[in-house]
Nucleic acid binder design. Structure first.
Lengths: 126, 126
DNA sequence: GATCAGTGCAACTCCAGGGTTGCACACCAC
DNA sequence: GTGGTGTGCAACCCTGGAGTTGCACTGATC
């Protein structure tokens, strides 16, 4: 896990979440779900400018990413938000940002050291 | 800003970052940039299974999202990582996750209260 | 000035995925 | 049972974007 956070591109669950969050309709959907709690796909479709089928597809993507979960209640399926995957991705992103900062600082330090060494030794190195 | 963090879908800079991060090649690109510091598009293309032109396009997207920045050095353009936008998006995501938790807790509390009230009053309500 | 490496721009192909429609199936109410 | 309401599945457009190729341009180097 620490490896994943540091590597940046090999994170398994994270890319699913990122891909899911990249779509505005899906973010809107998550917003509605977060606001209303347990809602069915049909109800969600009424609040959006798309068909129920489109909503169902989006919910499938969000479900695969672990961002939502659904349970049957009679003949309808109530979906609700699942914070765990989002939380994990948020932490991954925070770690990545910190990683960038560290690397940038390190590179900048090396560059300055190299400049200093060059200035001190001239071109006698090679 | 606090509104943006709470609303979730209206964030201006965030959706650019999310869309940029959704692509695996772009994440790989960011990884390389974070690891190597200032690199040109041509150099990056050598380390990836795509053309220089594809890299240039991706860099343009990342640049528009504020994730990278480039400066000319003679006849080449060196790109480097810009942590600010990523950091902002990470914070937005953390706030959103916290928001979900709050809402879920609130809804659950309301549901339990409603259940309790129902159990206490029977069906005398309607 | 001539040459070569790196960049920028434009047109083109191609496919994943967002959206739709249509229909079959399951469930609740009457 | 029968009718309505909600879900699931499948086939189908169609746009966006990832990737390519080709060429013109600019800046070093000789």
């Amino acid at each position: 896990m620490t490896d994943e956070a540091a590597a940046g591109s090999g994170a398994g669950a994270v890319d699913g979440v990122l891909a899911a969050l990249a779509d505005p309709t899906r973010r809107r959907l998550l917003d509605l779900l977060a606001a209303q709690g347990e809602v069915s796909a049909t109800t969600l479709a009424e609040a959006l400018p798309v068909t129920r089928q489109a909503v169902v597809k989006h919910l499938a993507v969000l479900d695969a990413a672990g961002l939502v979960g659904g349970r049957r209640v009679g003949r309808e399926v109530r979906y609700e938000v699942r914070p765990a995957a989002l939380d994990a991705t948020a932490r991954w992103m925070v770690a990545l940002a910190a990683d960038w900062d560290r690397r940038l600082a390190g590179i900048k330090r090396l560059a300055e050291a190299a400049e200093a060494a060059e200035a001190a030794e001239g071109d006698a190195r090679e």
